Simulated assay, not measured.
Amino acid sequence: MSVTAYRYDDLRALYLNCTLKRSPEVSNTEGLIGRSRSVMEGQGVRTSLVRAVDLDIATGVWPDMTEHGWASDAWPALYEQVMAADILVLCGPIWLGDNSSVMKQVIERLYACSSLLNSRGQYAYYGRAGGCLITGNEDGVKHCSMNVLYSLQHLGYVIPPQADAGWIGEAGPGPSYLDPGSGGPENDFTNRNTSFMAWNLMHLAAMLKRAGGVPAHGNQRTAWDAGCRADFPNPEHR
């Protein structure tokens, strides 16, 4: 593999923290995010972090909810940041064994824009890599990760191997990730998976960028709508 394949300084990564805590309250999820960001920034990736609950994101499944009765909606501006990133990492806590309500809202708003197309007639999120980070002190890391990663790939993101990482403490009201003595920041399993996830996201995002995205053949909504369906015979042309 050429040396340039290992360059990542032309990549941008966006971490969306879906904690329920508004800034400046301490977010344990943000503690784990910091580990992942440091790996990417060490390779020159430009990273940014947004705490979704700090924004006035409207509820709904349209790109701009002000067009559907809402007085304000921060999503359109956040969507611009999503589209500027080669890598999207959705991050959040476990509540009742599932993703947070903020995580669900963010995924719904990502879905709201999934029908938009890129310049090649593909769905807009094509050519980007996605992953997730989950924290908590109750079971559910893998369940939450499955939901997030399925959602991302369904919307058009490419998911690399081992694209999730997480940490859970002792079941019940025990210490959280950043609490003194929790063992979270020192946990080898979590640190290994967080590092692997960051590297695999960089590898895949770089490959996609060098290749110009996912090849635009057989997956163009514009071509399908125009009747160009090579895999399905058109009775009108018989």
Rank of each mutant, 00 (worst) to 15 (best):
Q105P: 15
G130M: 03
D98G: 12
H154K: 07
Q153H: 12
G127S: 06
P161I: 01
S151Q: 08
T135H: 13
L133S: 10
Y126D: 06
W167M: 00
Q153W: 13
M103V: 03
A165E: 02
S100C: 12
C132D: 10
D139R: 01
L133H: 08
I134L: 07
C91M: 04
G136N: 08
E108V: 01
I107K: 01
Q153R: 01
L152M: 09
A112V: 09
C113V: 04
G131L: 05
G97H: 09
L88G: 10
L90F: 13
C91Q: 01
L90T: 08
Q153K: 10
C91P: 15
G127A: 04
N137G: 01
L96S: 10
S115W: 14
V158M: 08
L149S: 05
W95E: 03
I107N: 03
Y125C: 07
T135G: 07
C91I: 09
S145A: 14
D164R: 00
L90P: 13
R109W: 14
G97N: 10
Q162G: 02
M103F: 12
V106N: 03
P160G: 06
G92S: 06
L152Y: 14
G130P: 15
V106Y: 13
G97T: 05
N137T: 11
S115H: 12
P161V: 00
C113A: 05
L149I: 11
L149Q: 03
W95M: 02
Y157D: 09
V141P: 08
E138N: 11
H143T: 02
K142Y: 15
P160V: 00
A112K: 00
R128Y: 11
Q162L: 05
D139L: 07
L149E: 03
A129M: 07
K104I: 04
A124D: 12
G136A: 01
P161D: 00
E138W: 09
Y125A: 06
Y111H: 12
Q105L: 10
S115F: 14
G127E: 07
R109I: 13
S151A: 01
G136E: 04
E138L: 07
S101P: 09
Y125K: 05
C113F: 13
I94F: 12
V141G: 01
H143C: 11
L116Q: 11
A165L: 07
L133I: 13
V141H: 09
C91T: 01
A129P: 13
H154T: 00
L149P: 14
L90I: 15
I159T: 08
L96G: 11
Q105S: 15
S119P: 11
L88W: 15
L155C: 15
K104G: 14
Q162E: 01
V141L: 12
L90W: 14
C132K: 04
H143G: 09
G156P: 15
G156C: 04
G136F: 15
P161K: 03
H143D: 05
D139W: 06
I159W: 06
L152F: 09
Q105F: 14
Y125S: 04
